[in-house]
Nucleic acid binder design. Sequence first.
DNA 1: TCTGGGGTCCTAGGACCC
DNA 2: TCTGGGGTCCTAGGACCC
Length: 399
Amino acid sequence: MLSNNDGCIVSRTDEAKAIGVGMAAPFYQNKDIIEQHDIAVFSSNYHLYGDMSWRVMETLRMLMPPGAVEVYSVDEAFLDMSHIPAAQLQQKALEIKNTVEMWTGIKVSIGVAPTKVLSKVANRLAKKHKEATNCVLLLDTPNKLKKALEQTPIGDVWGVGSRYAYKLLNHHGISNAWQLQQMPEAWAKQHLGGVVGLRLIKELNGEPCIEMKDPLEKKKMIATTRMFGIPVFDLQPLKEAVATYTARAAEKLRRQYSAASYIDVFVVTNERKEQAYTYNPQSNHRYVSLPNPTSITGELIKYAVPLVEQLYRKGPKYLKAGVMLGGIVPDSSLQGNLFVPPQSNKQRLLMSAIDNINFSMRDDVLKYATSGTTRNWKMRQEMRSKRYTTRWDELYEIG
DNA sequence: TCTGGGGTCCTAGGACCC
DNA sequence: TCTGGGGTCCTAGGACCC
């Protein structure tokens, strides 16, 4: 499966992994091997994945007490199982796994352990040894834990990225999670980013330090950024793109009942340096503080477009643009705000109406003229599967 | 010649995650 | 010719305050 714009490979079946299709590798570099083995390729399809993800998460929420499910990403969740007696954990995990598969068709694997970091270790092994574990693995004895940690390469530990993995291996001779777990806390604090490293060591030792997150927490930053489907050289399409992204970001803002206090616009160019044709992205950004926090699309566009005008120079090829909203505060216009002109309060109602229409009909049925009408810079999704579960006209058909 | 201590807030940048 | 998008947390350092 590919990232946006059909750029990178971001997920692979076990079979594709075995053949040697690289992770996060550029798609075009793997075209030969993909054609050779007739591997199926799919563009990103957020409607389908988002909907299936929601079905899986709903299933989990139905099987657990309120507040015990933390959705961590589109395909991952943490479950607080502290209310379940130790002797029943295995059975409960199996029940969850089977129910999810029965109700959604999605196969999941489950790792059970005292901390989040350890449950990720367990989950990875459950998935890796499907036959032996039946996709469920408990780390409930010191022995099992030691074995599991020994089998976990350092770079596969949650919280150890490529930088730390390199450093740990080459400067400290640490190659697996067990060796890391043995290191003193003071050492971790010094070499692995301060309190972050300290937490990691504690979690590896079974002491929970990473809390379950409240699902009602609001985002502190909201961004919409895209690569262009085709190279862009002119100001006009750049302005259209930034207006479009601003509208999307504003939608996300309103969905969590927030307003933004500043807006940051950036563009990425491929400056050709001395060696022609090399990929050499350069990012430039500019931001402005808003006189009043707002969630009104038109207001935000009014501030965003001048920023892109300031950033634009004729010449370079533009690969990408983006909008970031920050200084997120509760949206006071929701209750009707005495301190802004009545016009703004009406605007907020208009926004709600537009959001409802765009949500129930189809994305972007209603949009701002600044966003452009042809929009041929939009991203490529040439191999997108159908949106089976969210579009009537793309329903699965049985012959 | 000498130049405090303690605190807050903000931004930039680096690391990480999926 | 072609390399994603959207986040989080932490630290350092500067500006400013009394």
